[in-house]
Design a protein around this nucleic acid. Sequence first.
DNA 1: GAATTTGCCTAAAGGCTTTAGGCAATTGCA
DNA 2: TGCAATTGCCTAAAGCCTTTAGGCAAATTC
Lengths: 207, 207
Amino acid sequence: MVRVGLTAERLAQAGAELADEVGFDQVTVSALARRFDVKVASLYSHVKNSQDLKTKIALLALEELADRGAAALAGRAGKDALAALANVYRDYAREHPGRYAAAQLRLSPEAAAASAGGRHAQMTRAILRGYDLTEPDQTHAVRLLGSVFHGYISLELGGGFSHSAPDTQETWSRILDALDALLRSWPEPAPARDPAGARIGEARQQV
Amino acid sequence: MVRVGLTAERLAQAGAELADEVGFDQVTVSALARRFDVKVASLYSHVKNSQDLKTKIALLALEELADRGAAALAGRAGKDALAALANVYRDYAREHPGRYAAAQLRLSPEAAAASAGGRHAQMTRAILRGYDLTEPDQTHAVRLLGSVFHGYISLELGGGFSHSAPDTQETWSRILDALDALLRSWPEPAPARDPAGARIGEARQQV
DNA sequence: GAATTTGCCTAAAGGCTTTAGGCAATTGCA
DNA sequence: TGCAATTGCCTAAAGCCTTTAGGCAAATTC
């Protein structure tokens, strides 16, 4: 009986590769066992269960992404920094769609705390140092950037933009221009309006 | 043997309810059969397979969402329209998280063509009539709005914003303010810069 | 009321997950 | 170097999900 030398790390790594090849939600303990040419039960000495395996892959992806982000951000500020980080996310998603999907996995609070999630938030905040925002507005801006990056990338990757005319690269750089412009002149809160401002009240009811 | 009266529509409807209760990816042919107190195999006369069931739920959700959007948009323009549509998406996601997740399902080209996807695109374009954008910029803006709505909602729903201070309702309305301001003064494309503009070249290589 | 269609059922095979218990390879230590 | 303890991968088995095939009974049609 030859030992293959399985470890949790090798499983996570191989799981990440598998995810890129067949999609994150096709990653299965069975498929991974086949890839190592080993019986399924053998993996259960290294991962608790399927969820645990997926979590390990997610943590790996978040870590890789944070490393790339940090490298890209070094020595840049303002719009350069903004574009650099944004491109890190987008490029990573294109090179490693499975890993990128893994990075979106909803983590348990404990896993989240141990993840590179905090580094990601820090990097976005670092970008905002190049713009002149008050503290609460900074948080709003962090959330906006996260939303745009994540939303755009997942729509683009999912083929949501495929059909129409201007290519997505063009849209992407125009969106970065737009975000830069927006952050340079971040608007005041709009005054509540009456006739149609009812919407605001409606939305609040549901919180 | 009492007949329950299964139809594809009832299955989709019940599947949508199940999705809201247990999460879209916990929706399974077996679970749905249990819910109707019927044997699993019976469902296979009405849906081709598990994927088909999920597609039907997705189509239903897209349809519902489009109906709500159309209703909300009626008689509104400019920022009112923007906020109305945005709130439709967000409110729907909160009321019906499973259906909302279903609506993000990647559809086959045929299913996509038969879906309410087109109506959604039309609604976003309709909003932009209240702003002064050239044709290609309109497409960029449609994509931006889609990205922000989808990205924000999925992050908020996934708990990505939970920890920090300003509540998410506040951020949401500030983001709507920001988008409105941005659309009112949509920026020119930034001129390509040299030293750090290398990014643009790098990104283009990968297309 | 008989014939046809339709709807739900039983049966069965195949796949993934997870646990329990076992033997052999490796490692650690005299 | 040789023995003991540990560790790694295996077999076995149970449970759940998917999907197909074929059958009987209820509903529909004429």
